[in-house]
Design a protein around this nucleic acid. Structure first.
Lengths: 153, 153
DNA sequence: TCCTTTATGTCAGGACTTTGACATTAAGGG
DNA sequence: CCCTTAATGTCAAAGTCCTGACATAAAGGA
């Protein structure tokens, strides 16, 4: 049996629950839970909503591009897209004219569904944003981006 | 067909990628990815590592308590615990003496495995923390907590 | 005491996500 | 032109996580 070798934590903390990673995970989990609950009433999952939102602002994105935008694998996004396609919320051409990427677009029903869900999601985000002092919001966003970039996100 | 009804975003943004939720998700995904990669070399998943870390600092936690601490359901934590138990990294009594909760404890092997993995995880967290100005770190932690609380985290 | 509430562990089923692998397609360099 | 590289879509298998449900056990009040 070897002795325990304490590792210096990244910053002073009494336990893991004070680590940045833990707090980040907690906040993300809270957001995910709130969105799950709200979107369920609209018949959408979080990845599905994210996909619709991306397609609304960038019509014609391919499966791989959507996957990167939603931070999931191509395989996962493929499943999401099929679900959305079966629900007639998006459509994709059967074959690509140029490369291999199949550009996806919202259907009219997809747009209206997105509009409905967006109200609920924005209310959640508003509630979340209101919890932090307004003067720190910009810095918060900057720091989140820096952390993501530092980790290769 | 009804007209699209624009919803005011929670804060000024050109598109979803500038929303707080998106940035939060991006940072969390980057952290998760980095931890996944690092922990795989130690034969651990992120939930397993989180579980070991919690048990190291609070020995005797029950399945339900660990689930809350790791932001997953009891059912999910139950499978995590079984995996850790099968790998002899933790142990639980077959039956509870007092209530119904089964207190879990690290084995010696669990402790050494945790020590090894911790170095890798702390290096990641250090890298992440170093990416944000030190004077803003405390505020960042506070804001993450406020957002989590506002959403019922 | 009895009942309700709350919390826990567990089972079953399904949904989601991932890793690994393969074939197809476009682009660039030799 | 041919080959390598990179990117994409897809399939298969496994793991992970969730919702829903049920039985057990402690605590509190009528």
């Amino acid at each position: 049996m070897e002795d325990r070798k304490p590792v210096d934590p990244p910053h002073p903390a009494r336990d893991v629950t004070e680590h940045v990673g833990y707090r980040l995970k907690r906040a993300a989990a809270a957001l995910r839970g709130a969105m799950d609950k709200a979107l369920r009433e609209h018949g959408l999952t979080v990845p599905q909503y994210a996909c619709l939102e991306l397609l609304d602002q960038q019509p014609g994105l391919s499966n791989a591009e959507l996957a990167r935008g939603a931070f999931v694998t191509r395989q996962s996004m493929n499943v999401v897209l099929r679900g959305l396609q079966d629900a007639d919320l998006i459509f994709r051409p059967a074959s690509a004219d140029h490369g291999r990427a199949l550009p996806a677009h919202l259907t009219a029903e997809g747009r209206s569904r997105l509009d409905a869900a967006r109200s609920a999601v924005y209310a959640i985000e508003r509630h979340m944003v209101d919890a932090v002092p307004q003067r720190r919001l910009a810095a918060l966003l900057t720091d989140l981006d820096r952390m993501a970039e530092a980790l290769g996100g």
